[in-house]
């Protein structure tokens, strides 16, 4: 259920669950307000994708994914695909970054705005229907596809 902060796409809102950084760095990060239970927003990715600006309260701070990947969060506005129960229909809201990843999805016909139906979702593998075609996605991939449940 926990997602690494760096996996969230721009515009996501999440709640911080766990900060897993080395002690000294943790003190600074905590001092900046990265405290479990607080809301965090993904504001902007740098032109070369890394680092990313996050917003906590009205404080904006840039973190590299090497650090952000050690901060675990629970998404608020989107949920990752693997959390959707069988039988639901959902809309793709956002996709995590990764060129190869995006290419793969494009081949499946998956893009932001597309509707997908969850046919099966059992431990690790999710079978989905996109435009009448059926695909199977692993949990890793499914944690990078953010959706909104429609029905």
């Amino acid at each position: 259920m926990l997602i690494k902060l760096d996996e969230l796409p721009e515009g996501s809102v999440a709640v911080i669950e766990k900060v897993d950084l080395p002690e000294d760095l943790k003190e600074r990060i905590l001092g900046m307000g990265f405290i479990p239970g607080r809301r965090i927003e993904v504001v902007k990715k740098a032109p070369l994708v890394d680092p990313t600006v996050y917003k906590i309260g009205n404080f904006r701070v840039s973190l590299r994914s090497s650090e952000a990947s050690k901060i675990y969060v629970k998404p608020v506005n989107h949920i990752p695909l693997f959390l959707c129960p069988e039988g639901t229909v959902c809309k793709v809201n956002a996709l995590a970054y990764g060129r190869r990843f995006l290419n793969e999805l494009a081949r499946m016909g998956l893009d932001v705005g597309k509707k997908i139906r969850i046919l099966r979702n059992n431990s690790g593998k999710i079978t989905i229907e996109v435009d009448g075609n059926i695909h199977t996605v692993g949990k890793g991939r499914a944690s990078k596809i953010f959706v909104e449940v429609i029905e």
Binding site: S62, L63, R64
Partner: peptide, 10 residues
């Protein structure tokens, strides 16, 4: 090893 980059955007 790369050093952490934590910088505020004022």
């Amino acid at each position: 090893t790369p050093s952490p980059f934590i910088i505020e955007m004022p």
